[in-house]
């Protein structure tokens, strides 16, 4: 259901960046750190640039066919988590922002994800001290994440 709402990034509390296919976010109100990749990055880009999330879902379902079964629910859950964590909020303005992501760009973004879009997963890291004191070389797995501590 959240897919039909117009949303925006919760500036200035949510600060984000996308580095080599991974979006990283910090919620400065509580210090929590978040990360996601692939489909999650596409969803975030559409929200951040004021695009049509419903269109993104339609494109992904269309190109995914049977592989995209359940994707609507997964995207909805993902967006609900973004809202719950106050990383995005409802955009009450009557029209899309100036320079908003065009539909053609949304379609192209969906196409880049290919025919088997993975359900997006929001990784949350809630212990700020652990995050600051983490030894990134020794305390991380081969993927560079302290997996045991991720929620």
């Amino acid at each position: 259901m959240f897919i039909q709402e117009r949303l925006r990034v919760n500036h200035p509390h949510a600060v984000h960046d996308t580095i080599d296919g991974e979006t990283i976010i910090v919620n400065l109100k509580n210090g929590h750190y978040y990360s996601f990749d692939k489909t999650g990055v596409a969803v975030w880009e559409v929200i951040a640039r004021g695009g049509d999330l419903g269109l993104l879902l339609s494109c992904l379902q269309e190109q995914g066919g049977d592989n995209a079964v359940g994707l609507g629910d997964a995207l909805s859950d993902f967006v609900a988590a973004l809202l719950r964590e106050e990383l995005v909020i409802a955009d009450a303005s009557p029209s899309p922002p100036e320079g908003a992501m065009a539909d053609a760009e949304v379609s192209a973004l969906a196409a880049r994800l290919g025919g088997t879009p993975e359900p997006p997963v929001l990784h949350r890291y809630a212990d700020m001290q652990d995050m600051l004191l983490l030894d990134p070389i020794h305390d991380t797995d081969e993927r560079g994440w302290p997996r045991a501590r991720i929620e």
């Binding site: 910090v26 400065l28 983490l134 990134p136």
Partner: peptide, 16 residues
């Protein structure tokens, strides 16, 4: 990936 972990940590600390 290990080096990226150092990058993430630096990014996070800088934001804080």
């Amino acid at each position: 990936p290990k080096l990226k972990a150092a990058y993430r940590q630096s990014w996070y600390r800088n934001q804080q």
